[in-house]
Write a protein that binds this DNA or RNA. Structure first.
Lengths: 341, 341
DNA sequence: AAGAAATTGAGGTGCGCACCTCAAAAAAAC
DNA sequence: GTTTTTTTGAGGTGCGCACCTCAATTTCTT
């Protein structure tokens, strides 16, 4: 009836509590036979450590940190909000979460910052930053110091030994392509593609996914070269306008950057008469509103709340030396229409 | 530096540990002044009970139960699988989950079963069952007995005092309508709609949502009356065939029931030449495969794993007398294409 | 003012485990 | 066979809280 305790386990294994404790906690000086006996008994009586007792006895705080860009778009704000929420909720669960905002586009500064993170201060770090060899090295060294790393929402080339939280950007691009292709039907036309920069790995993969679908399945459509805004509003508005004027047969636009306000506004200003299909990334107050007002047609999103919680769960599991549950930690590529917002 | 403990709290409040304990656990014989002092001190020093210690001291198991239909489709199997998974994971977290499979379409039997659930045996129950006044009463009585109820994935009319886990079926139907409308473009045509039965509230709401979008936004399309399969394969195949033959201008099909194998197979048999758009509900091995093979175009899904975990989290929160975190517990209407499976 | 009732304090126990020490027993090495 | 090393056992402490008892103090009654 009652859950078996370690004492029951010791009895079942025919050993003392001390030996059982040694086996359970991988302490030295245990014979192979004892290990076997204990494991057998665990199976036999169905023993589980009471996690509450473990936490209490270890009396340890989980200390996790998010390293995020210092400036960014609305999506970043959403993300920060979710981290704060999670932090609040987890305060009562022995988990302390801090956020460092760093100019992540400066590899020097970022890797210096990463180098300054001590194992004494933190158990796990979730980093969202663009790729660079320096950063990659800094991350590797972080892991060597025994800190559990989560590569958070894209950026770096995947380190094999680190966990990753985020979507498959090739698939995300492909999904955008499929939506645009199907919404346009058989009419031929051109597709405008806007990115903040094509240096980032995310943009490259999205573009590849997008191209692959359009080229294979929608031969009537032609993808224009990617427009890069460099986060500059004036530049963005100008080049979008120019491209729209030179290509009256543009039927759709794919905004790959998480910041969609500037491109969408620019497009809408110059296409009053034409109704072109627009697909953007990430759910933000702006994109949500735009979807509601029929300014855009679809949002391809990854739920930031999910991502944050998933990263935390993974860091927690790693700290406990457990395997994360893969199925639960996969971030879905969400397709949002006005109807399922 | 250290987390404040109850002892620190007592000191800060200028009271004894015993009184603090009385306040924290709502025990009798405490003056209003003491309550005030303690609450003030809690705010001041930022006290949180160590949940691990609470669980350990209370030494109590969470006992939750899922009441599900006894027979059903692949989606039900998925659901059972997810419940088993969660049950396995939570075994190590003092949570015990049982499943009762009941012929939920027999209100007598179901309400008798619900009546037999004792508060001594279970802290919370998640019920998935079609609506009926009898069942509704049985559920109300269940709650009066102090058992926390979650209305699980549709079925009953919502009880105000109970929690609900599931999607908005009107919105789900609307989403299906939007997809079909946009995929078909401007071509006029008819849409076939298949349900298991139109008695169930879910089907009715999905149909209403679907109709509202098609009628408002896609005037070229006409929705045919709902075909009811009653879960009978032969009947389903026959009526689908008949309707397809009588309506050569059918351009799309919306399968509302979670069982999509029979209708999709029937449709594909009789539309080799025509390529009609098919939207189905729920991700199952069949629907997933069909999407991969281009037999269908879109799946509207609600993640069963999510739903199960959400129901458990809610029952747990209620048992702890905490508020569930609403934002985390909302089940999304997922739009699945081949690309974002 | 005396008795009754309500409130507070002091102190103990147990929840299940981690972590520690010291002695005893068993196995290995010589 | 003796010494060294390894393995085991017994026992204790503390983690932070819930829950209980009994006595002491305060507040309310009349």
């Amino acid at each position: 009836m009652m859950r078996p305790t370690a004492k029951d386990l010791a009895e079942a294994a025919g050993l003392s509590l001390a030996t059982v404790d040694r086996v359970l906690n991988d302490r030295p000086n245990v014979s192979a036979g004892a290990v076997r006996k204990v494991n057998e008994a665990i199976e036999r009586i169905g023993f589980f450590r009471n996690p509450a007792a473990v936490v209490l006895a270890r009396n340890k705080l989980y200390r996790f940190r998010f390293v995020l860009p210092s400036k960014g778009d609305q999506y970043l704000l959403e993300l920060l909000q979710r981290v704060r929420e999670a932090s609040q909720t987890l305060k009562s669960e022995l988990t302390e979460i801090t956020v460092d905002q760093i100019p992540t586009d400066d590899p020097h500064q970022l890797s210096r910052h990463l180098a300054s993170i001590e194992h004494e201060a933190v158990d796990g770090v979730a980093v969202m930053a663009p790729e660079s060899p320096q950063v990659r090295d800094a991350l590797s060294r972080l892991m060597l110091r025994g800190i559990h790393l989560v590569q958070f929402l894209s950026g770096q080339e995947k380190l094999e030994t680190a966990d990753f939280v985020g979507v498959d950007n090739f698939a995300a691009g492909a999904t955008a392509g499929k939506i645009i292709g199907r919404f346009l039907g058989k009419d031929p036309g051109k597709v405008m593609i806007v990115a903040e920069t094509m240096v980032a790995r995310d943009s490259i993969e999205r573009r590849r996914g997008f191209d692959s679908i359009i080229n294979q399945q929608f031969p009537g459509l032609t993808n224009l070269p990617s427009l890069e805004t460099y986060g500059d509003e004036r530049r963005a508005t100008a080049i979008i306008r120019q491209v729209l004027e030179h290509n009256p047969d543009i039927k759709a636009a794919y905004i790959m950057s998480p910041e969609s306000r500037v491109p969408v506004t620019a497009i809408r200003q110059h296409t009053d008469a034409r109704r072109i299909v627009i697909v953007v990334h990430e759910r933000t107050p702006f994109s949500e509103e735009a979807l509601r007002n029929d300014q855009i047609d679809t949002i391809i999103a990854q739920d930031p709340g999910h991502a944050v919680r998933s990263a935390i769960r993974i860091m927690r599991a790693r700290t406990d030396e457990r395997e994360p549950i893969a199925s639960q930690e996969k971030i879905r590529i969400e397709v949002l229409l006005k109807e399922n917002l």
